[in-house]
Design a protein around this nucleic acid. Sequence first.
DNA 1: CCAGTGACCAAGA
DNA 2: CTCTTGGCCACTG
Length: 113
Amino acid sequence: MDRLEILERMHVVLTGIPAGRVLSYGRLAELAGAPGQARLAAWLCRHLPDPHLPWHRVLSSDGHSRIPDEEARREQFHRLWLEDVPFRAREQVDMALALWRPEDEDEAPSAGF
DNA sequence: CCAGTGACCAAGA
DNA sequence: CTCTTGGCCACTG
């Protein structure tokens, strides 16, 4: 499996993240069939060809943003806020609740309890 | 070819 | 919470 194919699959996974849920770079890589390649997932998010893709739904595994640019970082959290993503702090998503699990394939983060 | 850097990550101290 | 270690991979000079 070459790099291009992996990137394609990552792209597919990325576009499939539902509003209100998020993924870490590492999980994105895993779901694309490329475990351990979180850095490649990060590279993809940075060089996304299409700005209307849900780039804001990908975060660091600890729920913090890794985007250096403050402007973009704010927009990221703003969008997530609008999607009712659960937060732990003002700039930290609650990954335990917000992480997307494709196998669940349904409802809101809080509904599962 | 090699070294540094980066929107990474998990485990340990 | 912070910092370090070791592993991962692409790009740049």
